[in-house]
Amino acid sequence: MTKHLEVLGYVCPFPIVEAEKAMAQLTVDDELIVDFDCTQATESLPRWAVQNGHQVTAFEQTGEAQWRICLRKIK
């Protein structure tokens, strides 16, 4: 299953809070795609993912001050 999360307009730490909520609903091997525009989350979201054992499968800037990160739930 792939879940798409759009947290545009959310500032830190809420992109992570929402990502964590969404992750909790998923099972192993599911994918979570997060679209966000909080500059600080370019640093904190991938760090949160790695520290929580999620795999970052893609990470790109999709526009002016807009980013997308794709995560896979490993455990």
């Binding site: 545009l8 307009g9 959310y10 500032v11 525009d37 500059t39 526009g63 002016e64 001050a65 807009q66």
Partner: peptide, 17 residues
């Protein structure tokens, strides 16, 4: 800094935020 890094955009929060 933001403009030169492609990190500037007008961003409007939801009313509650």
């Amino acid at each position: 800094a933001a403009k030169a890094s492609g990190e500037f955009r007008w961003r409007i929060p939801p009313a509650k935020t």
